[in-house]
């Protein structure tokens, strides 16, 4: 487990690598906004609290990490690269014809990818099933599921919320990347889903709200006590975080990065003096 400062450095490298990959993807474009919002969330998880080991990927007692908002692959793959699941060569094959690192992840446990993504609203149920298994077999492992705030519009999310509460799955942690934007605009404007912590509590979960770009707060929140309830970490984030022209602009949900903008973005991230390091 890394110290907080190391995780902050890891997040910075992830952000830079994400920009490289998006630039290399060329005209196909890539999901940038929702990846940049999730960088600290995943760094704090993979670099921080999660018990996973790239040298022993199939180890039964590993924590399970499932990605519901699978369009955040740029943050996901770069995190997996950082902790050794992916080689640089593999990472650089991102979104190339025939490569396995596709725009939405394909299941590949050996490379740390527990669950394929691309259809929203499914991962929390699957995570609940895994958490139930761990409970019934009295295993120590925890199951983390990263959800988008837009994803929470899926009814299936609320079905699994009820379920996890009924079975008192306190080994299940839902992390909601609350970046307030979805493909078509703000979550409030598109579907009106807000006050997520209130809703999660109403469905029987313990909810904790944190600054989703503060790795210290995130690492602490992931380990919060819940009195037997499942835990929802609502991470308030900025879509496109770290790149001024992408921040809070839904058009960067999925877009193409040209050379000029790429250089500008990289420079901004490199020069960023650690506002996230509080």
């Amino acid at each position: 487990m890394m110290q907080k400062e190391q995780v902050v450095e890891m997040a910075k490298r992830m952000r830079l690598k994400a920009l490289d990959l998006a630039y290399a993807a060329g005209k196909t474009g890539a999901h940038l906004g929702g990846a940049l919002s999730a960088v600290e969330i995943l760094a704090a998880l993979y670099g921080g609290v999660a018990r996973v080991d790239a040298k022993d990927p199939g180890k039964e007692e590993r924590d399970r990490i499932l990605i519901g908002k699978a369009h955040c692959v740029l943050a996901y793959y770069t995190a997996l690269y950082e902790i050794g699941y992916l080689t640089e060569e593999e990472l650089n094959m991102f979104e190339q014809d025939g490569a396995f690192l596709t725009g939405h992840p394909q299941k590949d446990v050996c490379r740390g990818i527990e669950y394929a993504g691309g259809s929203l609203g499914m991962a929390l149920s699957v995570g609940a099933g895994m958490a139930l298994h761990a409970k019934r077999r009295a295993k120590e492992q925890r199951v983390y599921v990263l959800l988008g705030d837009g994803e929470c519009e899926e009814g299936a999310v609320w079905e699994s919320m009820l379920f996890a509460s009924k079975y008192r799955l306190d080994n299940l942690i839902a992390i909601i990347d609350r970046n307030h934007l979805q493909s078509d605009g703000s979550t409030l404007a598109v579907a009106g889903l807000d006050r997520l912590s209130e809703k999660a509590e109403a469905f029987g979960w313990k909810a904790v709200c944190v600054d989703g770009h503060d790795v210290g707060q995130l690492m602490e929140a992931y380990c919060a006590g819940t009195d037997g309830r499942p835990l929802a970490v609502i991470a308030d984030t900025v879509k496109g975080k770290g790149v001024s022209f992408m921040e809070n602009d839904p058009s960067w949900h999925h877009a193409e990065l040209n050379e000029e903008l790429y250089r500008k973005a990289r420079r901004e991230v490199e020069e960023e003096d650690g506002a996230c390091r509080r």
Binding site: S125, A128, M130, A156, S160, K166
Partner: peptide, 25 residues
């Protein structure tokens, strides 16, 4: 211990079943 009732929630039924299956069941 080996029976699970998800309530009236078929989408969730499939998801939970898959989660259990991915764990080797």
């Amino acid at each position: 211990e080996r029976f699970v009732n998800v309530g009236i929630a078929e989408q969730n039924l499939i998801g939970v079943a898959a989660g259990l299956a991915f764990e080797g069941n």
